[in-house]
């Protein structure tokens, strides 16, 4: 049996660290500008007049009343989200009390907390793993803009640098009522968006 070169570091491979650092540097370089809102939110009425059909209404209603949030709570806003989930504020009134541990089963990401650049690739991976159609609520000051940590050397200044955000809920942290209001806004947005289903000719 051949004995290779002794490792410089005993616990982990240097290559893993270098790969991680490279990934973070690339992500930082590619996300200097905030991403725009993906949906047609401002000109909704135009789309509504042209496109809204009964099918759209049914699909929008179904989607908006069964949102499945993914578990992605990097910091302290998570407690307000947990409070909103618990019995007093009771998110299950809106059909979304189950937080999915697997992003494959989720379609809503509530970004509760400060995001560091070291964590950003993982959070973006969770977002990419979620099934379409998917939505993002930026919760709290840090989620919107980085908050008080905006000028820090390792805090992402807003989740919209790495993923498109649908609804912004301000506050530090927002009250559960504010979060529920943001979720209601998202419901309205989902219900008003027209679906891109093309009927195939027989």
């Amino acid at each position: 049996m051949e004995v290779g070169e002794p490792r410089k570091y005993i616990y982990s491979d240097v290559e893993l660290d270098q790969h991680e650092g490279q990934e973070i540097a690339e992500l930082m370089a590619s996300s200097q500008q905030p991403l725009p809102d993906p949906d047609r939110w401002l000109d909704e009425d135009i789309h509504r007049n042209i496109m809204l059909t009964t099918v759209d209404a049914v699909i929008g209603w179904a989607r908006s009343s069964s949102l499945w949030p993914a578990i992605c709570f990097p910091a302290c806003c998570a407690f307000e989200l947990i409070a909103a989930n618990a019995s007093r504020f009771d998110l299950s009134r809106f059909g979304m009390e189950i937080l999915r541990a697997s992003p494959r089963q989720a379609d809503l990401m509530i970004t509760a907390g400060t995001l560091t650049w070291k964590m950003a690739p993982q959070v973006r991976r969770i977002y990419h793993q979620m099934a379409e159609p998917k939505w993002v609520i930026a919760m709290g000051a840090c989620g919107i803009s980085g908050g008080i940590f905006r000028s820090s050397y390792n805090v992402v200044p807003g989740y919209n640098r790495i993923m498109p955000v649908d609804v912004y809920v301000p506050g530090c942290p927002p009250r559960p009522e504010a979060l529920i209001y943001g979720i209601r806004m998202l419901h309205r947005k989902i219900a008003q968006a027209h679906t891109d289903i093309k009927l195939q000719p027989m």
Binding site: Y9, Y11, V14, D17, E20, K118, Y153
Partner: peptide
């Protein structure tokens, strides 16, 4: 035995808790 960055990532420039950082 294993002196490498723990909180920040590999390739980060500088040491941010120094008084003369930035």
């Amino acid at each position: 035995p294993n002196l490498k960055r723990i909180v920040l990532w590999d390739g980060f420039e500088g040491h941010p808790l120094r008084k003369d950082y930035l």
